[in-house]
Simulated scan of single mutants.
Amino acid sequence: MLFADRNVDDNLISCNKVILLHGPPGTGKTSLSKALAQKLSIRLQSRFIKGILIEINSHSLFSKWFSESGKLVSKMFSQIRDFVEDQKFLVCILIDEVESLAHAREKCMSGNEPSDSIRVVNALLTELDKIKIHSNVLIFATSNVTGAIDLAFIDRADIKEYIGLPGVQAIYQIYYSCIQELLKAEIIQPKVIIQQCPDLVELESSDIYKNDKKLLKISEASVGLSGRSVRKLPFIAHALFLQTEIATLENYLEALLFAVEYQKTNSKYF
């Protein structure tokens, strides 16, 4: 936006306003894109009267009719430009699972992919080049399969950020939020205090934080699972490993550890 305001020649310094978030499934790429769009609309409210998030459903853009899919992509971007041309709007575009739209053309030509999918990629790249002249647009793309994305699209992405699996601290925070919700719902009783941001060194050296230590060990055992999987485990723990509706925190943490082991065992088959 600064470069556009200062009339920097985009033929000399290229900026396509495309951010590609890639990494394993369940790591929050789509949620992060939506959160960033929301944050931008708040930060830039002095400049824009309204923020708009447009989510592109890739699967709805493919037609059974020959050459129709490329036309659908062009028509969709034509509708998006109606919003973009109003400089009072901040327009964020989210293309989830972008490999569906920007599938590698080399693989299409060498395999059994229909030639219509090549037209879709060509149309998408053309529309990206057209829309980049506007200073009030930002495009988020997410992908779990970077090897399937066309190199021309990857080349157009200004920022390519890897979103990996959560570490111990992040997993602890997820479990903490889940336990707080279960305490609020009185599924875990009685009310107990557990630290949100524990000092790991202090935990190791003290006997006071017994439950915090257990949760930390469960978090360490959960490393390698996606954020989406970790958020499911508090439910699985209660559904499969508790025989009562209401549980103490100690019993619940034991069930949660069983749920982690259960999840890791099952993941080996997929």
Rank of each mutant, 00 (worst) to 15 (best):
S226L: 12
L249P: 05
F140I: 05
L249N: 02
T248V: 12
Q38G: 09
L61E: 02
G167I: 08
G147Y: 14
F77S: 01
K232P: 09
K217N: 10
S205K: 12
F62E: 00
A104L: 10
S100Y: 13
T248A: 04
K17V: 11
I159R: 11
I54S: 07
Y252S: 01
S58T: 08
L90W: 09
F89S: 15
S14K: 15
L40V: 10
K88L: 15
D9R: 09
K107D: 07
K217I: 11
A104P: 08
L36I: 05
L256E: 01
V137Y: 01
I118T: 02
L128E: 02
I194W: 01
T244H: 08
R105P: 09
G227A: 13
P166V: 10
N57G: 13
A148M: 08
L36C: 10
E106C: 15
P198K: 06
I52M: 14
K214V: 07
I93L: 04
F48T: 12
V260C: 05
D207K: 11
V260P: 02
L215K: 01
E99L: 07
K214L: 11
D158S: 13
L151Q: 08
H103V: 11
I154L: 12
V84W: 06
E261F: 06
I218R: 02
T265M: 15
D96N: 15
Y175Q: 02
T30V: 04
E204I: 04
E55G: 09
F258H: 13
Q87L: 15
I171G: 04
K130N: 09
S135G: 10
L40D: 09
S222P: 07
I188P: 00
D5F: 01
A123R: 00
M109H: 12
Q180K: 13
W65F: 11
I93Y: 02
G111M: 03
E181K: 15
T142R: 07
K107G: 03
F258G: 06
L2R: 05
I133E: 12
G164M: 07
A157W: 10
K17H: 12
F66R: 15
Q79R: 04
S67W: 11
V192F: 14
S69C: 00
L40Q: 03
K64L: 13
S222C: 06
N122T: 04
M1P: 03
R6Y: 06
L61G: 00
K191A: 11
I163T: 09
S69K: 00
S63K: 13
F241V: 01
Q196N: 05
G26V: 06
L151T: 14
K50N: 10
L216G: 07
A35P: 10
G111I: 05
